[in-house]
C-alpha cells in the first residue's frame, strides 16, 4: 500500500481502550508513541490514562508502562532512568505521561525535583483543564470562567476565578533545555516536537492540549476542530522554549473567543463582560509570548 501518510503508520496504542468517545488524551498518546517508538518505557500516575489502557489483564499500550501514585510521576521517571543507567541501557526513552492535575498541582514537587537534577527524561502533561477521571473537578490548569463540579454556576456564579497556571513558565524557570506546547489537532507538530525532545539530553517538558468532550460538555465529533479554534482564539498557544529561547511555532489569524467558548457547555454560562475580560487577558498573554520570542532570539 503506497498511501501518502503524514505521520508514522506503526500503531503502539491498540483499539479496545476505555477512553470516552472522541477523547483527545487518547489521540495524544497515539501520536506520542508513534514518535517515541517501541524502545520506550512509560510511567502514568492516577488520571484518565491510568484506566484507559483497560481492565487487567488487558492493555492497549504496546510498550512497558508503570502505574505510579498520583504525585510521583517525576520521581518515578527519574528512578526508571537511574535503573536503566545502572544496567548500562542508554537507548531507551523514558516518558512520564500525566494529566494537568497530576502535573500542575499534586505532582509539581516531584517534577521540580526531576528538573532540578536534570534527569534525562521527557515529561508530558496532557492538559484537559480539570480532574476528569474523578468526575470533573477544577485544577490549577482550569481557565477563568469554567464550570466544573467544584466551581458550580447558576445563581451562585462560583465559576473558576483564578487564571490557568502557566506551567511552561514554571518549567522554564528550572532552566531545562527543552519545553514545548502542542495540541492533538496537529499530530505532525506533536510528533516533530516529541522527536526533537527525545534527541536532547536532560529534562524535557511538553504540555499537550487535549480536548475532553465529557468534561467540556462538547460534541465528541468536535475534538479536532475545537483545537484549531483554541489556537486562533488564543485560549492556547503553540511554542517551544529551547535553552531559554522562545519560538512561537504557530501564529494563526485571530478569531473571537466567544466562538470557541460557546461550543462547550463548560463555558456557556459566561456573561459577555467576563468573556471580554478573559479575551483581553488572552490577547495580552499572546502579545507577551511574541515579545518573549523577540527578546530571547539571540540566545538560540
Amino acid at each position: 500500500m503506497m498511501a501518502k501518510l503524514t505521520i508514522p503508520e506503526e500503531e503502539l496504542m491498540s483499539p479496545g481502550h476505555m477512553g470516552c468517545l472522541g477523547c483527545g488524551a487518547t489521540q495524544a498518546m497515539r501520536y506520542v508513541l508513534k514518535a517515541a517508538g517501541r524502545r520506550t518505557i512509560l510511567s502514568i500516575p492516577a488520571c484518565c490514562w491510568a484506566v484507559m489502557p483497560g481492565v487487567w489483564p488487558n492493555t492497549c499500550l504496546q510498550v512497558p508502562e508503570l502505574y505510579t501514585p498520583f504525585e510521583t510521576t517525576g520521581a518515578s521517571i527519574s528512578g526508571i532512568r537511574a535503573a536503566l543507567d545502572a544496567l548500562g541501557q542508554e537507548d531507551i526513552n523514558v516518558i512520564g505521561f500525566a494529566g494537568d492535575g497530576g502535573t500542575a498541582d499534586i505532582g509539581i514537587q516531584a517534577l521540580s525535583g526531576t528538573a532540578d537534577r536534570q534527569d534525562n527524561v521527557l515529561y508530558i502533561m496532557y492538559d484537559n483543564e480539570a480532574y476528569m477521571n474523578t468526575g470533573i473537578q477544577r485544577s490549577g490548569s482550569t481557565p477563568i470562567g469554567t464550570w466544573t463540579t467544584t466551581t458550580p454556576v447558576g445563581s451562585t456564579q462560583e465559576w473558576e476565578k483564578s487564571p490557568k497556571k502557566n506551567m511552561t513558565a514554571i518549567m522554564a524557570a528550572h532552566g531545562i533545555p527543552y519545553i514545548a506546547t502542542a495540541t492533538t489537532g496537529y499530530p505532525e507538530d506533536i510528533i516533530k516536537k516529541v522527536t526533537k525532545a527525545l534527541s536532547i539530553k536532560g529534562t524535557k517538558f511538553m504540555q499537550i492540549f487535549s480536548p475532553c468532550p465529557t468534561g467540556w460538555k462538547m460534541d465528541p465529533a468536535l475534538t479536532v476542530s475545537i483545537t484549531k479554534e483554541a489556537l486562533s482564539s488564543r485560549a492556547f498557544n503553540l511554542f517551544e522554549i529551547e535553552n531559554g529561547a522562545y519560538k512561537v511555532t504557530m501564529k494563526p489569524k485571530k478569531t473571537p473567543l466567544k466562538g470557541y467558548l460557546m461550543k462547550q457547555g463548560r463555558f456557556r454560562h459566561m456573561p459577555d463582560d467576563l468573556i471580554a475580560e478573559v479575551e483581553a487577558d488572552l490577547d495580552s498573554a499572546y502579545e507577551n509570548l511574541l515579545h518573549l520570542e523577540e527578546c530571547t532570539r539571540k540566545k538560540a
Partner: peptide, 29 residues
C-alpha cells in the same frame, strides 16, 4: 480520518477507509 481516529479503528484500504466496527465507538471525528 485514519490520522485522527482516537480508537485506531480505521485501516488504509485500496479504495478508502476500512472500518473496524468491533472497536469504533462512533464519535464522528
Amino acid at each position: 480520518c485514519w490520522k485522527f481516529c482516537p480508537d485506531v479503528s480505521i485501516a488504509i484500504g485500496e479504495d478508502g477507509p476500512i472500518y473496524d466496527y468491533d472497536h469504533c465507538k462512533g464519535c464522528g471525528i
